[in-house]
Design a protein around this nucleic acid. Sequence first.
DNA 1: CATTCCATTATGTATAGACATAACAAATCA
DNA 2: TGATTTGTTATGTCTATACATAATGGAATG
Lengths: 243, 243
Amino acid sequence: MSPAASQAPATLHQQIKADIENRILSGDWRPGHRIPYEHELMRRYKCARMTVNKAIAALVDAGLVVRRRKVGSFVAQPVIQSAVLGIPDIQAEIIARGESYGLKLLSRRIRSPRGEPPEEKILAGKGILLDLKCLHSANNVPFALERRLISLATVPDAATADFTSTPPGTWLLGHVPWTEAQHRITAINADAAIATDLQIKEHDACLVLERWTSRGDEKITFVRQIFPGVTYSLIADFTPKGM
Amino acid sequence: MSPAASQAPATLHQQIKADIENRILSGDWRPGHRIPYEHELMRRYKCARMTVNKAIAALVDAGLVVRRRKVGSFVAQPVIQSAVLGIPDIQAEIIARGESYGLKLLSRRIRSPRGEPPEEKILAGKGILLDLKCLHSANNVPFALERRLISLATVPDAATADFTSTPPGTWLLGHVPWTEAQHRITAINADAAIATDLQIKEHDACLVLERWTSRGDEKITFVRQIFPGVTYSLIADFTPKGM
DNA sequence: CATTCCATTATGTATAGACATAACAAATCA
DNA sequence: TGATTTGTTATGTCTATACATAATGGAATG
C-alpha cells in the first residue's frame, strides 16, 4: 500500500485511495466529513464494490478514515500523535555522511548478571551476559560511547563474534530477528569517565539513548548509547500512517 | 488490520494472517522462508484464494512478507529500524500522571519574522508570526520551557486564542489539521536564563525537542521544548508495523 | 552452443453475486 | 406514551471466476 507517491498511478484501487487521500489531506474533506457511499463510488469509477472497498479499507488501515456499518464512512479525527524515529545504526550513519567510521572495543566480559542495575532485568535470573563497552568514532573524533549487554542464553553466537571490527548493533541486526524494542531518551551531564572517553569537558550535556530489545518473551539485548549533545541529534519524521 | 491481539479470532483472513504472523514472529519461519502457495493455503483453510490473498497482502503491508510473482511469498528480512515516538501533549501527559498541571505564559508578541534564526524559515517571507514563550509545570515544579512560533497567515485564529489557560500545543492539535512534522532531539547545557526559568542549576543537562509542523506546503508552527534532563525522558516503543 | 520462444506457474487485480451484520427509523403493540 | 418489532440500508466478508503479468525452465531454432 505504501508504494504510492511515485509516478505509477497504477491500479484502480490505489487510484481511488489516492483520490480520497488527497481530498482529506488537502483539507477539502474535513474530519467528520462523510465519504461517498461505496455504491456512489462504484458508479463514479465504474468498478465493482470490492475494488472501492479495498481502497477504503486501506485508508482505514492508514487511520485516515473511520467506518461504521449502516452509517457510512467518515474522515477520521486526526488524533495522530506519533512520529517515526529512525533507530541509528551508528556505523551506517557515519558512513552515509561520508566520514570514516572507527570502532574501539574498550572492554569485553562474560559474566552472570549482577541483578541490581535495572538494565540487567534483561535476563531475569537465567543465563549469562556478554558485557561490552565500545567507542564509535567518526573521522577519528569520538562519536558515541556504547555500553551493551547481550543475553548469551538467547544469542549464544554472540560469544564467538568479533566485535573489534563489527559494531555489536550491526552484528545483532543481521543475526537476530526481534519483535519488540523500547527506547528511552534522556539528557545527562558527562561525568569524568564519559568526558575522557568522548573527549569532551566534564559536565557537558550528552544525549542518552537506551534500548531494550526482545523477541517475544526473550530479552535479547540492552544498549545505552551516549552522544555528545552538541554534536549529535536524533531526527524523527512524521507523515500520516500509510503514506 | 490493527484490531488483532484481543480475544476476537474473528474473520477468516484475520485468522490466516495471525497464523502466519505467529510462525514468523516465533522464529519458526525464518527470514527467507517460503510461505505456502496460495493454493496450498486455500486447501488448508478451505477457502477462496481471495481470502488467502487478503491475509498475505496484509502481511506484505506490515512488512513481514515479501512476494514475487511466479516465485512465491517469503518471510521478509527484518530491516526494520524505526520506532514510534509518542509526541507529548504536555498537559495531557502531566494529568495522566496524576499531577496538577500549571501553565504560565511568559511572553506573547505578534511580529514579523526576523529571518535570521533558522526556525523562522517557517514563514519564508510571508505573513506575521505569533511568538509565545510559556512554562509548563507539574505540581508547581517547572516541567518544560516552551518557545513557540505560529504562522498567523496559516492559522489566523491563533491571534485571538487564549493561551493563558490552554497550552498552545493542545490548542493547535484541536484546531489545525496537519500532515507532516519533523523532530529534532538534542541535549544542551542550561544557560543562565533557562536555569532560572526551570529552577535548575546553570549548566545542568537539558533535553531539547524541536518540532516543525506543516500542512502540505504551508508551515504551521515551530516549537522548542526544553526539559530538565534529570526529570524527563522521552519514551519510544516499537513493535513491527501492522500489529 | 547460444539465443529465442513458449508453456507453465504463482501472484496481482478485478468482477459479480451472495449472505451476514450492525445501526437506524418507522411502524406496531402493550 | 413507551417498549418492541420489523424493514431498510451500508458496510463486512467470502466465493468463484476471469484475465493480466512476471519469472522460470525447457524446447525449438539458428
